[in-house]
Design a protein around this nucleic acid. Structure first.
Length: 509
RNA sequence: CGGAGUGUAGCGCAGUCUGGUAGCGCACCUGGUUUGGGACCAGGGGGUCGAAGGUUCGAGUCCUUUCACUCCGACCA
């Protein structure tokens, strides 16, 4: 590709709403463009190219793992969501609309219903199982507050996969296999990540693991052990129980627990003083949909006591209809790891993938059954597996940038090599540039030739901003028979003689 | 949904208090000079001032309504 023909509006100006490096550089580098609607972006040629490369890595590994790609209709009939019960549960994040005949539709934020619908129409026997289907398609979530560019957009590209099994054991086998496959994907993309135990949120299900790209700008707090590979989202993290006795001071937190159909109850949580309530754990302990702040002296109907307090509290101090012990504490930095007694630390992560053991939640609700060996009709065991493909672009930059711009990893780079001709009016420089460009292209190397009229400085700034891994600079040193080979990371420059540069490149690429 | 702000050229902003010819920087077009770290000179194009209504001889500016966006918070595979 010739730079002079490329649609890539790079800019010196930082968009005034951008705070994250990925947001700033993706816009400044001309990869994406704001559309004006909150959380909506256009992908310009280079952004689209990177998106496709990341997508290709995901697809390649999944296909190798025996998954099959499909494409589900983006517009989803609302009645499927009615069947699963999620139409009410999902709330305002779900974009709903009507067609001309006044039928209800939604834009899919995730496609369990659609995929289950597809499978229940085609799979009837255990002999057809297992099956792992996925798609890489646009999703829409009407986020309360979209922000951070591609990190939390409303429209985004997600890979969502679903597996169907005749037994729980087979589903768990596939779950473990997907974890392995995901590790390969993130490793190929050059990311530093951690697999952590997670809360499964609105999708539901039991076992769930998140793939966290480690970055200070991440929105999630994860707990990691410094001596083994234990990691968990703060919402699901556990630590080695601490020991308390009757001298321990306790605090109480009163909250209102909300349930389906507008039901609610007042709950008192009892914790050692100095320990914060982990709201997600607390929410699960009472089986509620949500906990909200509540300040009143009304009598609580339920009392939940942090389980490690044990005999350190006297249950008769509390008056309630129901009382039980449960782990409701936030893990603190410095706590001990349950697996190896190592020290736990907080870290920030970007959730780039999430895998769940769904079980039969959706297959039961939607009647996705098959006949087992005994001719009995039973619901399929399911797993579900997501990767935020467009978010990965942001995650790659969050982890790979400097104060000058992007530093794309090998498999995500928009080009393999950039050839910078410092002064295109210098015939010698331009001729060598064209020669290298032609030779590299012929070899199948994806190369960008900067043949613009601009000066050296402008071209270098754009090179640094765009972040192609390597470049050849043909400039005034050509008069002495020398050119430079540059590596974007650390901006290392190697002097190579103009005579040898072609064979040098032939060896490197 | 609470709190705070902002809507003026593709982008970033001034002008609004105190009503009187629509401005600046970047980007863009033409010509010339320049070519190792975002060049310079000269000339030029581009605007329903978010929208609707009102006050006024006259509204970007004042009043009313409305829409959108941004930030902080709550929320969130």
């Amino acid at each position: 590709m010739r730079f002079s023909k490329l649609l890539i509006p790079t800019s010196k100006e930082v968009p005034n709403d951008a705070t994250l490096a990925s947001h700033i550089y993706l816009i400044r580098g001309g990869f994406i463009q704001s559309v004006g609607g909150a959380g909506l972006y256009n992908f310009l040629p280079l952004g689209k190219k990177i998106l496709d490369k990341v997508r290709a890595v995901v697809k390649d590994e999944l296909d190798k793992a025996g998954c099959q790609e499909v494409a589900l209709s983006f517009v989803t009939p609302a009645n499927l969501w009615q069947e699963s019960g999620r139409l009410e549960k999902y709330g305002k994040e779900l974009l709903r609309f009507k067609d001309r005949k006044d039928n209800d539709f939604i834009l899919g934020p995730t496609h369990e219903e659609m995929m289950v619908n597809m499978v229940r129409q085609t799979i009837k026997s255990y002999k057809q199982l297992p099956l792992n289907l996925y798609q890489i398609n646009l999703k829409f979530r009407d986020e309360i507050r979209p922000r951070f560019g591609l990190m939390r957009g409303r429209e985004f590209l997600m890979k969502d996969g679903y597996s169907f099994h005749a037994s729980l054991e087979d589903m768990q086998r596939e779950f473990a296999y997907m974890e392995k496959t995901y590790k390969k994907i993130f490793t190929r993309l050059g990311l530093d990540f951690r697999v952590v135990e997670a809360d499964s949120g609105a999708i539901g299900g039991s076992g769930s693991k998140e793939f966290m790209v480690l970055a200070d700008s991440g929105e999630d707090t994860i707990v990691v052990c410094d001596s083994c590979d234990y990691g968990a989202n703060i919402e699901a993290a556990i630590a080695k129980p601490k020991v308390y006795d009757t001298s321990t001071e306790v605090n109480t937190v009163v909250m209102k627990a909300l349930y389906d159909e507008g039901k609610s109850s007042i709950v008192t949580f009892v914790l050692p003083s100095g320990i914060t309530l982990q709201e997600v754990k607390a929410c699960h302990s009472v089986g509620a949909n949500e906990l909200v702040e509540y300040d009143s002296s009304t009598k609580s109907s339920v009392v939940v006591i942090e389980e490690t307090l044990g005999a350190a509290v006297n249950p008769s101090d509390y008056d309630a209809d129901e009382m039980f012990y449960e782990d409701i504490s936030s893990v603190c930095e410095g706590d001990s790891c349950v697996h190896c007694s190592g020290t736990l630390r907080y870290s920030k992560g970007i959730e780039a993938g999430h895998i769940f053991q769904l079980g039969t939640q959706y297959s039961k609700a939607l009647g996705c059954n098959f006949l087992d060996e005994n001719g009995k009709s039973v619901p399929m065991e399911m797993g579900t597996y997501g990767i935020g493909v467009s978010r990965l672009l942001a995650a790659i930059i969050e982890q790979n940038h400097d104060d000058k711009g992007c530093i794309w990893t090998k498999e995500s780079a928009p080009f393999d090599l950039q050839i910078i001709v410092s002064n295109i009016k210098d015939e010698g420089q331009m001729a060598l540039g064209e020669k290298l460009y032609g030779a590299m292209k012929a070899k199948g190397v994806d190369v960008l030739l900067d043949d613009r009229k601009d000066r050296y400085g402008a071209k270098m700034k754009d090179y640094e901003l765009i972040g192609v891994p390597h470049a050849v600079v043909i400039g005034k040193n050509l008069a002495d028979g020398k050119v430079e080979f540059m590596t974007r990371k650390e901006m290392l420059k190697e002097e190579v003689s103009a005579e040898n540069i072609l064979s040098f490149l032939q060896e490197r690429f």
